[in-house]
Design a protein around this nucleic acid. Structure first.
Lengths: 186, 186
DNA sequence: TGAGTCATGTAATTCGTTACATGATTAA
DNA sequence: TTAATCATGTAACGAATTACATGACTCA
């Protein structure tokens, strides 16, 4: 509770878009923020209960039309919105960066150059795929959420992914040149 | 022990540069990899003991010239090098990305635009400072480790930081334009 | 009929951070 | 003499992942 556990804010932020069930939040996170933020499965349901206890959200059970199967729809309250807002304006906490690719390359002298090159190539491929995905999501967003007050902010975060992916590809290209030419020059 | 805890590999990698004490490794991590990888204080000493138990490193106590104060110098063994190598050639595990700035901006419609702009400006300033630091480290490295077999790899990871920082600055600039012009256009 | 997904939750374990604890050395 | 840094370690807590557990619904 010391400003670290941000699961609840993620949930409140999602519920500020529209009322949702835990499962729907999970899916929404996967679709939208997973590029820069994810929550693990085991955290969402307990955190939702916690939000209800605190009065930040209400929950009403919705019986599916056809069966006994229920679905709990959570809705943010005004206190919940206030709680979310108070977090949003707080100083941004630095992210813990852990980039395993860079760590392995940092120790690159211990293996054959081919291994390092391989890692970079795989990475390059993954980033390219990611970039294509971002670009198609971008088109999608612009047509499907034309009038949403969220659109502007979603595009900003998406553009972050696009800008960073392009830079990452540039770095891959430069790095491959360095690694592949090793031994030839000098 | 399921491929996740990478502290030991970080330590072995550092010891593959040269024999060091726990404290020196800590300092070395701060100086060199902290941009993309850090280890928390409480992990280093137990992990070092673990490496000795496994036969990946040896440890000899070095009494300081003047006093009773001891310093434990760890040295990587050939088994340790093998262990390191076997990890280095393994598939790179995807990083968990957690970018709190983007998460807050994603939920940006819930606060006054001024708050979002502020977060981006602070971020921009931090990145600028980081970039300057990278550039000066780069000069430093090139002159102080001219003949080190590690130099090439260290420059690669440093250039990652430089490329990404520049891209980050570009995104900040673009984002500020979007946020600052809101309401004026359309 | 079997795979995939919808749907909610708990438990165990591992991981990571922070704080604590101690004490010597060095430089201002 | 006091603050900073060198130096090694432990304990407690908090966070995160993974696996477990259950079961209905849907479509091929």
């Amino acid at each position: 509770m010391n400003g670290k556990n941000r699961t609840k804010y993620t949930l409140l932020g999602m519920l500020a878009i529209e009322p949702m069930s835990g499962y729907e939040i999970k899916k929404a996170i996967e679709r939208s923020t997973s590029y820069f933020w994810s929550e693990s499965d085991g955290q969402i349901y307990p955190a939702l209960s916690h939000c209800v206890e605190k009065g930040w959200a209400t929950c009403h059970e919705e019986g599916s039309k056809t069966s006994t199967r229920t679905k709990k729809i959570y809705k943010i309250t005004s206190q919940g919105k206030e709680e979310l807002r108070s977090w949003l304006i707080k100083k941004v906490q630095p992210n813990l960066l852990r980039n395993e690719l860079l760590l392995k390359l940092f120790f690159g002298k211990n293996v054959k150059e081919q291994e390092n090159i391989h890692h970079v190539r795989v990475h390059e491929k993954e980033i390219k795929e990611g970039l294509n995905m971002f670009l198609s999501i971008r088109d999608n967003l612009k047509s499907n959420h034309k009038n949403s007050p969220d659109l502007k902010y979603w595009l900003i975060t998406l553009d972050h992914g696009i800008t960073m992916s392009k830079a990452e590809l540039k770095w891959c290209k430069d790095t491959l040149i360095v690694l592949e030419n090793a031994g030839r020059i000098s």
